[in-house]
Amino acid sequence: MNEQAGRLAERAQLVGGNRMELLLFHLRGRQSYGINVFKVKEILPCPQLTNLPHHGAIVRGVASIRGETISVVDLGMAIGLPPVKSLDDSVVIVTEYNRVTQGFLVSKVDKIVNLNWKDVHPPPKATGKDNYLTAVTELNGTMIEIIDVEKVISKVHPVNERVSKGVVDDTLKLISSKYHVVVVDDSGVARNQVIRCLDEVGVQTTGLTNGLEALRYLRSIADSGKEVEDEVLMIISDIEMPEMDGYTLTTEIRSDPDLSRIQILLHTSLSGIFNEAMVKKVGANDFLAKYDADELARKVVNRINSLQQVEPA
């Protein structure tokens, strides 16, 4: 087994155990920030940047990295902080989110830490809705703020949230409103993208912020005496979430007789090859890389159509 395959196997065990690796870094000052190591392709000293006209101020320029032209965003500016003090002393974290390779300019990279998602929590309500955090955690008495990178990227690379004409036909729209989809994602931007897409399909939606919240919601339906699979068409869940990730949520659902028949679609920006293996391991029904409105809508449409074929007229 080569080094890359070995590292992949290690990460599969890590994520399957409701654990994560967090890359810690600094922007300005002593505050520590983090992003999931799974999204990081490489870390390098800031290369030469070429300015681009007609780009927002947060895009400091583009760089040629391993033959690929990548835009570099000043991550501090993107979340409302001052820019890095000096490009010469700064670092670029090259990431892959939502099928886009993106560079983030930071002042300093610290280290990688291994955490349990149980120790990672939603940001305090006092931070408000306009913050750029998906979660917070504490390490050796230091508060770590985990950045909502999908929210940052949406400012630089807006996605098309509209479903193309013909993906959802008029006949389906006549029946889709009786179906209910649960959407689970800690990023408010990503969660609302999915909900807006499903609005065009015509289904009802409930948006939740992490796996633990979703599990409690589903069990509350079961505890009320209702058949959960009759009440929920499917769950569309992110993987990386505070308190309980999507893999652990899937495992918990499959081990609960009252919930085990629910359809689960894991919807994430993590590596497709890696996730296809994990989908089989934990028992999810399907996997879809973020974000394509038409692909997502088709998954829901196909699920409705499959039920229509077996339900009595």
Rank of each mutant, 00 (worst) to 15 (best):
V184E: 13
E200Y: 08
Q204L: 13
V181P: 04
N210S: 04
T209S: 07
L208R: 01
V183E: 01
Y179V: 13
D199E: 15
I195F: 01
D199A: 13
S177K: 15
N210P: 06
E200A: 05
N210K: 06
K178F: 12
S176W: 14
N210D: 12
L212H: 08
G211S: 11
G188T: 14
D186P: 11
L198M: 10
V203H: 01
L212E: 08
E200D: 10
V201I: 05
N210C: 10
S187G: 11
D186T: 08
V194S: 07
T209K: 06
G188F: 11
A190G: 05
V194A: 15
R196E: 07
V203A: 01
L198K: 04
Q193S: 09
V183K: 00
V203N: 01
Q193T: 08
Q193C: 06
G188S: 15
G188E: 13
D185L: 08
V189R: 00
S187P: 10
T206G: 02
G202K: 00
T205S: 02
N192W: 13
V201R: 03
T206W: 06
S176P: 15
K178E: 14
V181W: 03
V189C: 09
E200H: 09
S176H: 14
G211F: 08
L212A: 09
R191T: 02
C197D: 00
T205P: 01
V194P: 00
V183N: 00
H180I: 10
T209E: 07
S187C: 13
T209G: 01
V194H: 05
Q193V: 12
T206S: 08
H180A: 11
C197G: 06
A190N: 04
H180W: 10
N192A: 14
V184R: 13
N210I: 05
Y179E: 15
A190Y: 04
V194I: 15
T209V: 10
G211D: 11
V184P: 09
Q193F: 13
T205V: 04
T205F: 02
V201E: 00
L208V: 02
V181S: 00
D199R: 09
H180E: 08
S187V: 10
Y179H: 15
Q193D: 07
V184M: 12
I195P: 03
L212Y: 06
